[in-house]
Design a protein around this nucleic acid. Sequence first.
DNA 1: AGAAATATGTCAATATAGCTGACGTATAAG
DNA 2: CTTATACGTCAGCTATATTGACATATTTCT
Lengths: 189, 189
Amino acid sequence: MKTSIERKPLRPASTQALVGREPAAPESEPMFDLIELFFFAYRDFVGDADRLLENYGFGRAHHRVLHFVYRRPGLAIAALLDILKITKQSLNRVLKQLLDAGFVEARAGATDRRQRLLFPTPKGAKLAQELAILQSERFRRVFGELPPEAREATADFLLAMINASDRERVRAHLPPRRRRRQLPEDDAA
Amino acid sequence: MKTSIERKPLRPASTQALVGREPAAPESEPMFDLIELFFFAYRDFVGDADRLLENYGFGRAHHRVLHFVYRRPGLAIAALLDILKITKQSLNRVLKQLLDAGFVEARAGATDRRQRLLFPTPKGAKLAQELAILQSERFRRVFGELPPEAREATADFLLAMINASDRERVRAHLPPRRRRRQLPEDDAA
DNA sequence: AGAAATATGTCAATATAGCTGACGTATAAG
DNA sequence: CTTATACGTCAGCTATATTGACATATTTCT
């Protein structure tokens, strides 16, 4: 079967008007500017960490696990799965590598010995910090270029972007200052 | 060889103090709050589109291609590769599917016939709009909950987060209002 | 005590999205 | 007329995720 990527019956582009532009007033104006800005900003933000992780043979998945283990030491597997919203099979490959490489360690729960509670090792804590510092440098440059209210405004914006179902849990880990604003209950999902 | 994920010599967690917390003043305070907020906010933001794309058998890669073809009709392959920062082999699989399914079409360049300029079909334009509207609904809810300056402040923040090397190109596609601020030249990469 | 639920690990197969390297072809530019 | 450019494609590889099925240790319920 012929694929449609091949060189043949292409008329020159100039012979036809652009298709699909000016859609005669869509239902609710799409905010293309913010969509693209968010895409590029997040891509460059995670790119910083990607380069550091390469030195360790780790990827983004390892970063996420290490980060949350560092931030919530004693985290159980199920809680981590709930944060990351991936399956345990997916987590296991990555977590196994972090355990084998000595960046994370697991200990049986004190009350429930079925649980395997995760802790960063000193080595793991060091890497988690380096990654966080690297990403914070970008934030620091950005807020150095913006008015002083920008940091609070940004945190408010990002928090509001999170699905209501997770918002409270995320807010609980914010520094006290950032925990003020009480938003109404609704969810875009 | 034994893996380290297995149930055996785990002492209870309570017998050891948490490792790696309170790192005795890191070089420059990591902004953990913003790092996590950015992670969760972006995850939920793209999740909206993911659900719609499933109905078409498409993934995020298709979304990105369709979006930029819709926004920059007549885009050449090389320009698209430069925006997405992926290889042509990666692009080709996804682009082929969009061409075959009739969401995008390619036409030879008028001046340079080696180029294959990409355009959305009416069907492709419709899907691109639906996706953008869906993601804009989240923005609209968010800015409805925040003070009126928040939208401008958010655009400023996101633009500043982008690597300087790409910032001008992105700014060129913003609506006029959003193009004011001239930031100093520097790059975190 | 015994059954059932829970927390976790693991095997196998599959999908998506990316990569490198090598090579082919049409067109443009020197 | 040679070289460079824009693109397509084949082959093989990696990382990250999925579903489904099953195993094991431990807790909880009856």
